[in-house]
């Protein structure tokens, strides 16, 4: 028996919004420690790594490890049926063919159940080495979203250049060039609005706007985003999910031909 309950179904809705543009289907690995998803987009350019810890759920039970292949589009449709104040419970048997989503209104007067067929999937796991990154930048997620959207108008890719002065984002295309510089914030009174740069070595990396614009869909999950970068290795873009876990996106850099 697997059962996981979240009082705030809104968290799960936001998680689905954060992955549905990148993934069509994914395997949800459920164990005693929680729920994990690791999946690449179809083009093998980016990877989503989602971790929801069991202790972050309001109720969690997983008698045996389960790998459940799910259609992200279908799951997203189901979660759109949850009211914003509803609680959500995920439930499956030990050898499941289906997973059930149960939504309960705060006054317990409405109970909705949606059963979704599971799908058989080939497992394609990537071993991500433990890396110490040259630059770790933390910044408001809204600001990062704005920068990605704004610069996407000027080119297909955005160059991230990080130095001890701060981080510079730039894009260029047929119409010209755009650059946005962010300096480290001086006062750390408001953590949510702070920009912090932890640099060992300067980095300069170029990434596809198309993927960055998918990652920023996780913005509503967390006020801050963390960008971990080293030259010539994939970017890690991380959003915390309250006290329950995190979503990390890995994105391969572009290289000059």
């Amino acid at each position: 028996m697997f059962e996981a309950r979240l009082v705030q179904s809104a968290i799960l809705k936001k998680v689905l919004d954060a992955i549905k543009d990148l993934l069509t289907e994914a395997t949800f690995e459920c164990s005693d420690s929680g729920i994990q998803v690791q999946a690449m987009d179809n083009a093998h350019v980016s990877l989503v790594s989602l971790n929801l810890r069991s202790d972050g759920f309001d109720k969690y039970r997983c008698d045996r490890n389960l790998s459940m292949g799910m259609s992200i589009a279908c799951m997203s449709k189901i979660l759109r049926c949850a009211g914003s104040e509803d609680t959500v419970t995920l439930r499956a048997l030990d050898n499941p063919e289906n997973i059930v989503f149960i939504f309960e209104s705060p006054n317990k007067e409405k109970l909705a159940e949606y059963e979704m067929k599971l799908i058989n999937m080939d497992q394609e796991h990537l071993g991500i080495p433990e890396t110490s990154y040259s630059c770790i930048v933390k910044m408001p997620s809204q600001e990062f979203s704005r920068i990605c959207r704004d610069l996407s108008q000027f080119g297909e890719s955005i160059t991230f250049a990080c130095s001890k002065e701060g981080i510079k984002f730039s894009a260029s295309g047929d119409y010209g060039q755009a650059t946005i510089k962010l300096a480290q914030t001086a006062d750390a009174d408001n953590e949510e609005e702070a920009v912090s740069v932890n640099m060992q070595e300067p980095v300069k990396l170029t990434f596809s706007c198309r993927y960055l614009n998918c990652f920023i869909k996780a913005g509503p999950l967390c006020a801050q985003v963390q960008l971990s970068m080293s030259n010539d290795v994939p970017l890690v873009c991380e959003y915390k999910i309250g006290d329950i876990g995190h979503i990390r996106y890995y994105l391969a850099p572009k290289i000059d031909d």
Binding site: M40, A43, H44, V45, S46, L47, E124, H125, L126, G127, I128, P129, E156, S157, T206, S208, V233, P234, Y250, L251, A252, P253, K254, I255, D256, D257
Partner: peptide, 14 residues
């Protein structure tokens, strides 16, 4: 436009 790398070149398939 720079070439897009494949993520699998950076990580090992397991």
């Amino acid at each position: 436009t720079p070439m897009q790398n494949d993520l699998q070149e950076f990580f090992a398939l397991i």
